[in-house]
Structure formats: C-alpha cells, structure tokens
Design a protein around this nucleic acid. Structure first.
Lengths: 197, 197
DNA sequence: TGAGTATGTATACGCACGTTTACAAGTCAA
DNA sequence: TTGACTTGTAAACGTGCGTATACATACTCA
C-alpha cells in the first residue's frame, strides 16, 4: 500500500487516511474478530497514527460500526444493483454455493466473517444486531414470498453464521475432504428448509 | 453457595475448592464467553482466591479446557447413559426441540453456550476444536446410519452453533414472537436436511 | 506438641490495551 | 510571508488483565 506523492494527492489527506483506516479495520476485523484486533494494528496496517483512529472515528467500537455500515452482505452474494434480484427458489442454491465456495478457499464476504468472528463481545452487540438485521435479515426477507419472511430469513442467517464458526474451528481438514457437489447439495437442502414458506 | 463447616468437610479442601472453581468457570464462560470472563470473577464467584486458579489449573486456558472436558453436550440433550440411544429418525426433532426450548427460555446446555460464545479466540481454538469433535461431532455421527456421518453431524453442528449466535444477537424479540410449533417444525426440517443420508 | 506440608491470602509484577494530551509539521487564505 | 487551521506524530495515562511471589494459616502425623 504505497502512498504516491502527487500534486492531486497532498501528503496530508484526511479522507484518504480515513479510508485506509476503514479498509485496514475491515480486513483485520474479518480475519481476527473485534476483540483480537488492537487499534495499533489497524493504524499500522493503514500506515497511520494510532491517535487518528480516535480522532476520525471517536472510538474503536464506533470504527467497527462504520466498517459494518460500509459492507452489505447480500449485495456481494447476489451481485450489484444492476442485476435483477434472484427469484426466491434460486436463493437456497445461491447461499449454499457461497458457503461451499468459502470452504474450498474462495474469499469470504467480509461482513459475514466479521459478524461470526465478533459475536462474542457484549460491548458491540447492539451494533452487530443492528447491522445483522439491516444488511442480512431484512434484505433477505424482502426477497422471500409468503408469511414469516423475517423468521425464515433469520433461520438462514443461523446457517450462515454457524457455517462460519464451524469452518473456522473444525475447519478445513474435515470439510474439504467432502465431495464439493454433495456438500453444496446438502447446504442447499438446509437453506431450502430454512427459507421454505 | 454457603460453605458449611463440618468435621468431614475441613475448612480447607482442595477438591471442593477445585470443584467450585470449575463450576464457577463453567457458568461464567457459558454466560459471557472465554474472553470476557476475568479469572478474578471466577475466583470471586467460587469464593476462592485468584492465585488458586493458576495453582490448580495452571492457566486460564487450561481451566477452560477442563471445563469443556467436564461437559458433554449430547448426553444433556438425549438423557443419561441409562436411556437407550435415540433412533436416527428421532434426531432432528430432538435437536430442534432443544433449540426451540432455549429460545423460549429453557436453560441451555453449558457446552453449547460456551462454544458459540468463545469461538472467536484464537488462543483456545485448538481446545475448542478438540472438544467440539469429541463431545459433539463424533457422538452425533455415531448415532447416524449411512455414509458421510461426520459430514452430516458437522452440518447439524453448524445449525446448533449458528442458532446460538443468532439467538444471542438478534435474540429474544424476533424469535420469541414466532409460533413455537412452527419454529420447531422449521428447525426439524433444517436438521433433517443436515442429517439426511 | 511441634515440625513440615497443604491450602489459602495479599499483593505486586509486567504487559497490552483504548484513549488522551501536547506538540510538530504541512496547508492555505489573506 | 504570516498566521490560523488542519493533519499527523510521539509519548504518556489509566486501567484491567493473567500470572507470580511471598507470606499466613490450617492441617497432619511422627
């Protein structure tokens, strides 16, 4: 992450520094979870000074909130706003493929990784709760037809979160040996059960 | 937790103190997760001195390992060793009822709570991994018939873990309003999909 | 009973953390 | 160019933590 010095990019650039801090925080939170990322590590990765975290964001918890606010989980699963929204019957397979691909090495959605790695901390629980609802449950529920849309979306979210935890702890050895197609099929069935009207 | 003074119970009792520390640690870890339980809180709850944690267990992480070793998740779901093991087709409903009951206020299995609250910490990840396999995946896989027993058990474990996280963060407001029977049915379908041969 | 051991206590060490403060250096308008 | 403002830096503060040490008290048994 080199910082080129150009006439258009002054040596001191509040917005650029803010953005570097935000991206560094996002990456580190996704990798280690809120509790296990010191603000000094964020600053070091962003090549910025520690004090700027508090100056620009107020606190570590507030920075965490801004990171979540800048991420939307479903947009990354289902493509940008240009694409048409997937039909409800496509949802289970799309979600299953995302989980299966993660297990086999595809990069994960930062928001989901951040969430399933940081749920333990009571201090940021309200922040996590709000963004889980706004970025995961509600958009997913809007894609569903029929009653109990939020409940069904929540059930699917439980599978997403649990898959993250299991993948990280039991991890690669166990799940990667499984036949990828069989794994995707099983996950599809699980999401189908979670999302069914 | 009063300590009665009897001739048989000397005022100083290594085993009793050890047991009190273990139980206090189990309860606090289940409530707050490994990271957010200071050893001083464990000692206070056990009415013991902080130094005894390290004297009797070596370290906080080792104490955590002993807590996990003293808990078996499935035994608590499926009764003691006296009862006959449940048939495979009963498993989804039994697991679903456990999750649903937790949501509606029933006391949770400490091991599951400890796990889904502590998965974020890399220091104790090998400990968590070992006990998740030994106390959850393997016993569950042994109850299953057909191929891929461990993979199917792992899929069910993902639902269990994810339900814990979702219940704690999104929590009570959302899920408790749901019809208990409908919730149990949906969870049963999800576990069925996870465990199906 | 009294020495030796087991158990419990009080306290401090050393460190990492989030945050704050005081200051330096760059930027830009007048 | 100068002076006010913005951005960045260095260093410290205060706190809480896991752990270690030195000591006190209770127990055991020759």
């Amino acid at each position: 992450m080199r910082l080129e010095r150009t006439p258009d990019r002054p040596k001191r650039d509040r917005e650029a520094t803010r953005r570097r801090l935000l991206e560094a925080a996002r990456d580190l939170f996704a990798e280690h979870g809120y509790d296990h990322v010191p603000v000094r590590a964020i600053a070091a990765r962003a090549e910025a000074n520690v004090a700027l975290v508090n100056r620009y964001f107020g606190s570590k918890a507030a920075l965490f909130g801004e990171v979540l606010a800048s991420e939307s989980a479903l947009r990354r699963i289902f493509g940008g706003p240009g694409e048409p929204p997937p039909r409800p019957q496509e949802l289970p397979r799309r979600l299953a493929e995302h989980v299966a691909h993660q297990i086999h090495g595809a990069p994960a959605i930062p928001l989901l990784r951040i969430l399933d790695r940081s749920v333990g901390n009571p201090e940021i629980q309200p922040i996590i709760r709000r963004h889980m609802e706004q970025s995961l449950i509600e958009p997913l529920a809007e894609l569903l037809e029929g009653p109990d849309a939020r409940l069904r979306a929540t059930a699917a979210a439980a599978i997403l979160m649990g898959s993250g935890s299991v993948r990280r702890t039991l991890g690669l050895s166990e799940l990667r040996e499984a036949d990828p197609q069989a794994l995707t099929d099983r996950l599809t069935a699980m999401f189908t059960a979670a999302l069914a009207p």
